[in-house]
Computed example of a mutant assay.
Amino acid sequence: MKIDKIKLQRLKMPLKAPFETSFGKVVERDIILVRAFGGGEVGIGESVAMPFPVYNEETTGTVFYILDEFLIPKLMDIEIQHPDEISSMFSSIRRNNMAKAVLEMAIWDLYSKQTGQSLSSAIGGTRDEIEVGVSIGIEPTVEKLVEKVEGFIEEGYRKIKVKIKPSWDIKPLSAIRNRFGDSIPLMADANSAYTLKDLNLLKQLEQFNLMMIEQPLAHDDIIDHAKLQSVLTTPLCLDESIHSVEDARKAIEIGACKIINIKVGRVGGITESKKIHDLCEEQNIPVWCGGMLEAGVGRAHNIALASLRNFTIPGDTSASNRYFEEDIIFPEVKLMKPGYIKVPTQSGFGFDLNEGLISKLVYLEKEYKLCSKLSKKY
């Protein structure tokens, strides 16, 4: 495939309201957009890294550095015929998965446009609509949380995910169940806030009939999660612990989880996401697509990923207006009907860029000419 030029843009995008988890509060998205130019088309990807290394070791700054110093220069040395080759091409560079993912996303989008197919079709998607849920951060009061849950239920979201941490767990979950009963699909996301010393407390979460408890223990653990899963009926879902298909294989083999959350940025790209999806399907492990407060570009890539067959649990890909007053794409992501988003059928990721807003938010740009060393074959 033909790639002539890569362009990086870094921009800051304010959230409508602060979003708080067990590891801190986010008030704006610090985003890197990667554009890949070739054959008269432009592919686009969005980095999900945060400006501080709390979700994982990467930051927006390290992603920009790794792209600039290592990943983009590698494109000058190796011919590419298909985006699936990118992950092996970057295998000599350890981790830095979010940096790898955003460049690979742009190339996948470019490939789908050059071949005249939607991104969903290009990666093997089978759905024309996806079920979606919503993620709710730690709120100032239980009353405020319950109010937000009620609003999202009225909008028809198919899954309610609430963030928990020590001292913010039993009370909020109890309030939600007392107000809405067991009929709403509810899950709790701990973002690694507990240890096995909290076993008695974690056992108390069983009373709430949760769909799952997401990543309750350490961000790099599967051993203790296996111990915890063995004494819980509620399924455990792994997020931060899974960075590759090999991580997923090992976690499944030792019984560390019954569900896996796949995030393109965390695992290094769409190709690795597909491998994890396929493994989980073979092992009867359901998967869903997690969110990282993405703007419209990242949100669109998540929609395409969630169109794969084994994404049987509603993901976190809510509408654009959940987080932003104005999004960087046209049209903005909206619910086509309560709890569902349409999978785009036009070529590429399926939306136009809101260039006017992007130009207002960008504060750093850099371009790279790649020229003739890349294969021009599909």
Rank of each mutant, 00 (worst) to 15 (best):
N321T: 13
L33F: 14
K16F: 09
F37E: 15
V245E: 02
I123E: 02
H219Y: 07
A300C: 13
Q346V: 14
I78P: 01
Y65P: 03
A99V: 02
C257R: 12
Y363N: 15
S230W: 01
T62D: 11
K263S: 11
K148C: 01
P235L: 07
I123H: 08
I259T: 10
L364E: 11
I130Q: 09
I262V: 14
I223Q: 13
C237P: 03
N302E: 15
L71E: 00
K274T: 06
S112H: 09
A300F: 09
E58S: 14
K274S: 03
K165H: 12
D198R: 01
G156M: 14
L186A: 04
I138V: 14
P166H: 07
K148A: 08
A193M: 09
I254N: 02
K165A: 14
K377F: 12
L238I: 04
Q346M: 13
P344T: 06
P338T: 05
L293H: 09
A256I: 00
S244G: 06
Q229H: 02
S230G: 00
Q9F: 07
E139A: 07
V34G: 10
I252Q: 01
L361R: 13
V162L: 05
S112T: 00
I276D: 03
I136R: 01
A218K: 03
F351K: 13
L119M: 08
K74F: 11
L374A: 15
I130G: 01
I31C: 11
P338G: 06
S372W: 13
Y363H: 15
N261G: 13
K366Q: 10
V27E: 14
I259V: 11
D221I: 02
K197M: 15
G268C: 05
F349S: 06
F70E: 01
T195H: 07
C371Q: 13
F90I: 09
I6V: 15
L202T: 08
R249W: 07
G290Y: 11
E332T: 14
G291V: 15
A306P: 02
I254W: 01
I259R: 12
C280G: 03
L364K: 09
L186N: 05
